[in-house]
């Protein structure tokens, strides 16, 4: 299927690793010009080198903190200068890690009873303000073109809080992002701009691998025991591949997906339980 993405200018945050990198790769493979942003220069350099093999001349990178609106503005300005007005924006920022020694870089560990309330503000800055700031910064370009695609890499907890895990921070903040996007979608529909949110399930990324290794060490189990017990809770009995996330995002960015907006779409192997 020709997704009609040739020449479209895209920004992918968190684009140097995992899901973000898979999205950047697939968008570039479909002919888009892609700016990837991430905090650390090293992984960015490595990612952009690999991406240039797929899409020579159509990929660039910039180091920035996408949880800071000033960082977002820098990235958007650099993208305009390199490729022109922005047509596609994929927000892909992880929650803040309070203490990586305790959490193994897992998502915002802690339950409600033990969570100091200021942490809700830090998580809001990471997950909500990042998604809002990127959208806010690129909307004028999209309105001028009468065409735009905005996607957020959210989480299944937006619709169904993970109460069996100590994930109170994403549990509380992710639904707010989904709601903000839903409202933006309604207000931007007349401008040819779609706004969608992905409800990510368990996807096997580098970060996820390091989390399993950490959890195995914590519980005195083997890596295989930890993942097998987890996989048994997923109807398809495996974690997702980042490419399976990237494929949905790429489709949502296509011309064909122009009537799909304001949605929160799960990619989670059938794990959720709501109707």
């Amino acid at each position: 299927m020709d997704l009609e993405l040739q020449g479209k200018v895209a920004i992918v945050s968190g684009g140097s690793k995992g899901i973000g990198r898979a999205i950047a790769t697939m968008l570039a493979g479909e002919g888009a010009r892609v700016m990837i942003a991430a905090r650390s220069q090293g992984p960015l350099d490595e990612a952009v080198e690999a991406l240039r093999e797929v899409a020579p001349g159509r990929v660039a990178a910039i180091a920035a903190d996408m949880t800071d609106p000033a960082g977002v503005a820098d990235v958007v300005a650099a993208t305009r200068a390199t490729f022109g007005p922005v047509s596609i924006a994929v927000s892909n920022v992880i929650g803040h890690v309070i203490d990586s020694k305790k959490e193994g870089d897992g998502p915002g560990a802690g339950n409600f009873a033990s969570m100091p309330s200021p942490e809700y503000r830090r998580e809001f800055q990471h997950l909500f303000v990042s998604a809002w700031a990127l959208a806010h910064e690129v909307i004028p370009d999209m309105q001028a073109q009468g065409w735009g695609r905005i996607c957020n890499i959210g989480s299944g907890v937006a619709r169904e809080p993970a109460t069996e895990l100590p994930h109170v921070l994403p549990n509380v903040v992710r639904p707010a992002v989904a709601g903000m996007y839903r409202i933006m979608a309604a207000r931007l529909a007349g401008d040819g701009i779609t706004v969608n949110n992905i409800l990510t399930g368990s996807i096997l990324t580098e970060r996820n691998l390091s989390y399993w290794a950490w959890l195995a060490a914590q519980t005195g189990s083997t890596f295989e025991e930890v993942t097998a017990s987890f996989h048994n809770r997923i109807p398809v009995r495996r974690q997702g591949d980042p490419k399976e996330m990237a494929a949905l995002v790429t489709f949502l960015c296509s011309q064909q997906a122009r009537h799909i907006t304001g949605q929160s779409i799960p990619v989670e192997g059938g794990s959720s339980r709501h109707l």
């Binding site: 409600f112 109460t163 549990n171 509380v172 992710r174 639904p175 707010a176 903000m180």
Partner: peptide, 21 residues
Amino acid sequence: DEVGAVTSLAMRAAQKVIASE
């Protein structure tokens, strides 16, 4: 109240967590 809709979603999720705990 669009801004209230956003914050209410967060609070509704928090209530779900508190209900569980």
